[in-house]
Amino acid sequence: MLNAIPAEWLWGLAGGLLIGTGGAVFLLGNGRIMGASGILGGLVDGSGRSNWAERAIFLLGVFALPLLLLPVAGPVDTHVTQNLLVLVAAGLCVGIGTRMANGCTSGHGVCGISRLSLRGIVATVFYILAGGLTVALFRHLLGVI
């Protein structure tokens, strides 16, 4: 019976549980919010020199875990475009947006909303709306993605 149920939502659930648990452990362990863009940004701009090893280990885990799960889960179709120009432009837009919003989905969305932070809730509402509008424009009107 279980084989008849599509398992894609299980991966989303598992990922959400891992991100939420990681955010809780990070907050309880060192008293700071687990915002991936802030962790990376502190390494890039030098503001995180005092705890660079912790930041580097966190980012190593973010990149290494999917590779470690590959033999268990097998390849996953992410539906990401193969257009390199679109990927680079999207990455730059996300990076600029997270700096403008002083955070990303892990900081505002996961950690901010769970702490009932008004700033986190407002930021999350706006980036979800912006993402929806972007998909509508680029996929349905322009046919780029």
Rank of each mutant, 00 (worst) to 15 (best):
G97P: 00
A123D: 00
G31T: 09
F58W: 04
A101Q: 05
L65E: 11
S47T: 15
P75Q: 13
E54L: 15
G109P: 06
R115W: 13
I33M: 12
G143H: 01
I19E: 14
A14K: 05
V80M: 13
L59Q: 03
G61K: 08
T21A: 14
A136I: 08
S37M: 08
L85N: 10
I19V: 15
I19G: 09
A36T: 13
P75D: 15
G22R: 08
I57L: 11
G95H: 02
N3L: 10
G29N: 10
T98Q: 00
A4D: 12
E8Y: 12
G42R: 01
G95W: 06
G132L: 05
G61S: 08
R49V: 06
A130G: 07
L27V: 10
V76C: 09
R99P: 03
L13H: 07
N83K: 15
L17R: 15
E54M: 09
L85G: 12
L69W: 14
V80G: 09
A4F: 14
C111G: 07
V144R: 01
L18W: 11
S114W: 14
M100K: 10
A89C: 13
I145T: 05
V94H: 04
I113Y: 10
G35L: 02
M1F: 07
L69G: 15
H79D: 08
G97H: 04
F63A: 13
G112N: 05
F26Q: 01
G23L: 05
A4L: 14
G42H: 07
L60K: 00
N30C: 11
E8T: 13
V25N: 09
S47Y: 12
L87P: 07
L133G: 06
L137R: 04
L116T: 11
S47K: 11
L67C: 11
V76Y: 13
L2S: 05
G95V: 01
A14E: 06
G48C: 01
G120H: 00
N51G: 11
E54T: 14
R32V: 09
F58R: 00
L59P: 02
R32T: 12
V44E: 15
G46E: 03
A24P: 04
W9S: 12
G143C: 05
L87V: 12
H140S: 10
V94G: 09
G22F: 07
P66A: 10
F138K: 04
G74V: 11
A101S: 11
A101D: 05
M34D: 09
G41F: 01
M34L: 13
L142N: 01
G35R: 02
G143Y: 02
T81K: 05
A56D: 01
G103M: 05
L28G: 07
L18M: 07
L10G: 09
L65Q: 08
L133K: 02
A56C: 06
A7L: 07
I128T: 06
G42T: 08
W52D: 04
G143V: 03
G131Q: 11
L65P: 12
G41I: 02
A136E: 13
A14W: 11
R49Y: 03
F138N: 11
G20C: 14
M1L: 03
A56N: 07
L60M: 06
A101M: 08
L13A: 10
M34S: 10
G12W: 03
G16I: 06
V135M: 07
A101N: 10
Q82H: 14
A56R: 01
M1Y: 09
L116P: 06
L133H: 07
E54F: 06
I113T: 13
T134F: 08
R49F: 02
R49M: 06
